[in-house]
Write a protein that binds this DNA or RNA. Structure first.
Lengths: 351, 351
DNA sequence: TTGTATGCGTTATCAG
DNA sequence: CTGATAACGCATACAA
C-alpha cells in the first residue's frame, strides 16, 4: 500500500497543496499546520514517488563536470566515458549534465571555474588539480550553496559533499606487496618515473610513500630501493640513455615501479633495448599501458576504475540533489590489480 | 524537444489510442494505419517516457531469482545481497522481485522450479547448478516464453537471455600467472582442495584447466604441479594429517592453489601447524577466506564480484523486460586479484 | 477499426 | 496563509 501526498493531506486535515509547500519549504504556511503535517508524514511513512515527481517537474537540474582535457593527458578519457554512461542512465530524468574541459594550467582552470559559476549550476563535479585555485573555487561554491564532488584527487580541506577516487597510499602499498611477492632474494627495486614540469599535486608522492611504508614494516631483506626521476624537458634519446645507464650501473635491479600513469614510456625504452628481464609495475589502464602489458614489457598495472570515478560522482550528486539522499563523504574505489591474463575483463574496456 | 505519443498521432492523422494499440500490438487496427504510424514514429524518432509509463501502469512485473540456500554454502550470501541492492534500486518501479532458495540437491531444485513455473513470472534469474535439471527448466521457460538469465555457472546449451558471471578458465589462468611470478626456481605447486561428495558441475575443473594451460604455454622451468583431492567424508583430524603428510613428503612445494572457495579450510590446517612458509592462493571473498588473508595464511584471493552477479542479472532482466533493451548474451565479470592490502576496498565489503 | 476520457502522484499556478 | 485544479506522458476502459 502506497502512501501518497493526498493521504497525508487527509490525515492532517489540510489540502495537498499545503503539504507540498511544507515538504519543499516554499513558505506560506503556519507553524502549527507544519507540525500536523510532519506528524502525519512520520506516522504514515510517506516517501515521494520519483516517477511522478519527475513527470510533473518543470525546471531541470543542472550538473556540470570540470575535467582536464584528455587531449593533453589521455587518462581523462575514462572518467569522461563514465560521465557519459551516467548521462545515458539519467536520460529519462529532467537533468542536464554538461562537461567542461580545462588545460592543465592554473589560468585555464580559473577561467573554467568562472564560467561555471556564471552558469549557476545546481551541482558541480570537478578534479581539484591545483590546490589553491581549487580551494577558492570550493569557497565560492559554498557561498552560493552549490554542492560539489571531488574526483580523483582528495583535498581534506575543501570539504566537498564527497570524494570519489582511490586511496593512493593503499594503492602504493598494494603495488609493494606484489613486488615483495615477485622479488627474488638480493635483488633490488627501482622507483622510476618520467615527469613533466613539476605537478603541483598528483598521486605520485602518496603512491611512493605507500610503497615505502609497506617495505618499512616488512623485514627488509637484502633488497634496496633506488629512485630515478627523469625530466621530460630533454629530448627522447637523452632519457632513454639515462634509464639504461642507471640500470647497467645497478645490475641487481630486478623490478621497476612506475608510480605515475606513464609506465608505457619506460616500457618503450625497455622494448627498444630488448630487455624483458625486468618486472615492471605501473598505474592506470591507458591503452598504451595495456599494449605493453600484453607484450610483456609491463607485468602489472594498478587500476583505479577511472570510469567509475566519473560515473559514481555524477550519480551520487544526482541522488543527493534529486532524491535528497544522504551521501558518504568518501567513495573509495577499489585498488585493482591487472595483468595480461585478466585485463580483457576489466571495466568493460574491450567493449 | 520531446516527442510524445500525441505528436506521432497528429503526424499520422490518427488518435493517441490507435498509436498506443499499434505500439503495444494489442490488435484492433488496420494494416495501413499501422504503416502510417510506424512511419511517423521513424521520422519523429519517438521513444516512450519511462517515468510516465511506470506511473500509468496498472500491473506489475514479476521477476523471481532461484539461488542456492546460503545456509549450506556461504558463497551465495553475496549474490543475494546484490539482488537486494537491485530491489532497492528499482523500488520506485512497478516491479516485484522475489528470491527462492533451494538446497543443493536435485530434488529440491526441481521442486523449486515447479513452484516458480506455477507462479507464472515475467522473468527468471537462476543458478543452473544441475545440468540436466537446468536444461529441462530452461525448456519449460522457453515454452512459456519466459526469458531467463543464468548466473555463476555457464551452460552453452540452455541458451539463456544472458549469462552473468566469470570466465573460470580465465580465472585459472590469472591465478597461474600470479603463481608464476611468485614461484621460486625449482619449487613446486600443489593443487589442493577439500571437496564434498562429487559436485555435478562447478567451476572447479575449469579453474584447474585454465591453470594448467597457462603453465603449458610457458617455459616449464623445473617446477612440477601436484594434485591432492581430500574428501570431506572423513573426520577433520584425518584430512589435516593427509595434507601435512603430503607436504612433508614433497618438501619443495612452495605454493598451494585451491581452486574452490574453501581455501580457508587449507589455511586453518596450516595455521594449526604454524606453517606460514607457503604461498596460498584461493577463490572467493568469503569472510573466512578474508580472515586468513589478513592473518597471512592465504596470500591471494581471486574474486568474481559475487554481488554484481545478482545485481547485474536482475538489472539486465528488468531492462530487457521493462525498457525492452537489447542485451548482451554474455556479461563477463572481471577476474579480481585481492590480497591483504587491497581487500578492504573491494565490492563495498566493509560497509 | 478508431477516438475519447479518466487516472497515475506530483508540481505549480491561481484564486480565495 | 490555504485549497482547488490543470498540467506532465502514458495506459486503458469504454464509447462510437
Amino acid at each position: 500500500m502506497k502512501i501518497r501526498i493526498v493521504d497525508i493531506a487527509d490525515k492532517a486535515g489540510v489540502s495537498a497543496g499545503t503539504v507540498d509547500r511544507i515538504i519543499h519549504q516554499r513558505g506560506r504556511y503556519s507553524e502549527k499546520t507544519k507540525e500536523k503535517v510532519e506528524k502525519a508524514i512520520q506516522e504514515l511513512g510517506y516517501a515521494p514517488d520519483i516517477m511522478a515527481r519527475n513527470l510533473a517537474l518543470k525546471k531541470e537540474l543542472h550538473i556540470v563536470c570540470l575535467i582536464p582535457n584528455p587531449n593533453d593527458t589521455k587518462y581523462w578519457e575514462r572518467p569522461i566515458s563514465g560521465i557519459h554512461k551516467a548521462i545515458s542512465e539519467l536520460a529519462s530524468f529532467k537533468v542536464d549534465i554538461k562537461t567542461v574541459l580545462f588545460l592543465p594550467r592554473k589560468d585555464d582552470f580559473k577561467i573554467a571555474c568562472e564560467q561555471i559559476l556564471q552558469s549557476n549550476p545546481d551541482g558541480v563535479v570537478y578534479v581539484p588539480m591545483f590546490l589553491q585555485e581549487s580551494l577558492s573555487f570550493a569557497e565560492l561554491l559554498n557561498d552560493k550553496g552549490i554542492p560539489f564532488v571531488h574526483i580523483n584527487i582528495h583535498h581534506s580541506l575543501a570539504n566537498p559533499l564527497s570524494y570519489v577516487g582511490q586511496d593512493p597510499i593503499a594503492a602504493g602499498k598494494t603495488a609493494a606487496s606484489l613486488c615483495a611477492m615477485a622479488l627474488q632474494k638480493n635483488h633490488h627495486i627501482l622507483i622510476a618515473y618520467i615527469s613533466k614540469e613539476k605537478q603541483e599535486y598528483s598521486h605520485l608522492q602518496d603512491r611512493i610513500d605507500g610503497f615505502i611504508q609497506y617495505f618499512d614494516h616488512k623485514h627488509s631483506d637484502q633488497s634496496q630501493i633506488f629512485h630515478l626521476d627523469i625530466k621530460t624537458n630533454k629530448d627522447e634519446s637523452e632519457y632513454d640513455k639515462q634509464l639504461m645507464q642507471y640500470l647497467n650501473k645497478h645490475p641487481n635491479i630486478q623490478l621497476i615501479y612506475v608510480p605515475n600513469s606513464r609506465a608505457y614510456k619506460i616500457a618503450s625504452i625497455l622494448k627498444k633495448y630488448k630487455r624483458k628481464d625486468f618486472i615492471v609495475i605501473g598505474f592506470d589502464t591507458l591503452i598504451e599501458n595495456i599494449t605493453y602489458l600484453k607484450e610483456g614489457y609491463i607485468d602489472l598495472i594498478i587500476g583505479q576504475q577511472s570510469k567509475s570515478q566519473g560515473f559514481n560522482a555524477v550519480m551520487l550528486l544526482f541522488n543527493a540533489l534529486f532524491r535528497k539522499e544522504a551521501v558518504n563523504p568518501q567513495n573509495l574505489l577499489p585498488v585493482d590489480i591487472l595483468n595480461a591474463e585478466n585485463i580483457d575483463f576489466y571495466e568493460g574496456l574491450m567493449q
